[in-house]
Design a protein around this nucleic acid. Structure first.
Lengths: 215, 215
DNA sequence: ATCCGATCTGACTGATCGTCAGATTTCTGC
DNA sequence: GCAGAAATCTGACGATCAGTCAGATCGGAT
């Protein structure tokens, strides 16, 4: 599906080329773990990979394109979040458990890809469509899943004055993403993630069902 | 309080110097509106301000320090958000109105400072303590305000199995900040901000009171 | 007009970017 | 195993930007 790996000038990369390319990506990712995004230099990545900057440019247009590559892999892995919204009963105790599972899925996913997600978030907020698309591919799946869940609950309840399901779903997803991306920040305050988890789960549950979760 | 404006080498800036400095800050802010953070160059800012790079370095250590300056002004302005959490009755219809006002305050504030807040967010997530402090000074005030509100409601309700007030407050604030920072993103989907506002208000209300907002 | 401190800048060094032609390594057919 | 071809890598280069400093310029006080 991804097609073959190609160099910037269109040549198909062979075994050695792919290995080098992957090594560059790995080093770039490690670099992003430790240095501010703005300070990541091609020359450093190349040096870390034991190669030359020219080689980097053989495989990537620029740093952003390389990060986009990593982000695409991440997005593929992110599709597992989608499953957490499907075929769930969202009412009663089972519903709260489902909310907890969704929350945990987000927290774990963000913990794993934090530095990449930071860049994806920034770049898409800055209007870069390539990164926007990646972000979407992760979040849209979850958003539509939740939208359907909310629609279902609202259809049964029939109070008539509910909020728009897709807006509520989008808001919940944004919330999950934001909190997941600031886990370290929360810990640095006097707020424990152990307490944040139930707060998130409760909000997800209430956002979907409009009710307080059962004890 | 801020003390006098000083150049990097410690001299106190006079009238002309302050004007130049401010012009540089203005141009930097405009630059951030239009270019990706990573692509903002000192030389461009200086050029736009009709001055030379050397002058820039007379007033700022580097680009980040200059942005931090802008961010500090913003934080000062952000203290108005704090007022939106104080002396509010958070129950019943008045409570929902208060939630709406808080949501609107966030949305407006983020609309005004979006590009700066993006950088503040990134830098503090990357562990830059200076930016982290700025972010805190805006959000902590609101978080503690909401924490108190939740504690008050819980004290009256006495169901005993509530979530931790500060975790809930922190989560709500993170949600508000996240959604506010992705307003354009929402609009690009098929989700209207007109629908997001009530979704946010509802979640804030439910997060605080544990009840569905009154019609 | 002259002086003095405040302010600005040209010019410089060093680092990184991004490119290209040519060197080096790996693969292929025999 | 070897010659030739293809794939891969790199040194070297011009361009751009970071960051510094000594000296030029400005503007107000006398």
């Amino acid at each position: 599906m991804t097609g073959q790996v190609r160099t910037v000038d269109g040549r198909v990369a062979g075994r050695r080329g792919q290995a080098t390319r992957q090594k560059l990506l790995d080093c770039l990712r490690e670099m992003l773990d430790t240095s501010p995004y703005r300070d990541v230099k091609v020359i450093d990545v190349a040096r870390m990979a034991g190669t030359s900057p020219a080689t980097f440019y053989q495989y990537f247009q620029d740093v952003e394109s390389a990060i986009l590559e990593i982000a695409n892999d991440m997005a593929k892995d992110g599709q597992r979040l989608k499953a957490l919204t499907e075929d769930q009963g969202w009412t009663g105790k089972g519903g709260y458990a489902a909310a907890e599972a969704l929350v945990d899925g987000f927290l774990e996913f963000w913990r794993e890809y934090e530095p990449i997600l930071r860049v994806v978030d920034l770049a898409s907020a800055e209007g870069d469509k390539r990164f926007y698309k990646v972000r979407q591919s992760i979040l849209t799946a979850v958003t539509t899943g939740l939208t359907e869940a909310i629609e279902e609950v609202q259809a049964k309840g029939k109070t008539g004055d509910e909020v728009a399901p897709n807006a509520m779903a989008g808001t919940l997803v944004a919330m999950l993403a934001a909190v997941s991306g600031h886990q370290k920040g929360f810990e640095t305050w006097k707020i424990k993630m152990k307490d944040v988890r139930p707060a998130l789960s409760t909000l997800v549950f209430m956002g979907i069902t409009g009710k307080k979760p059962p004890r």
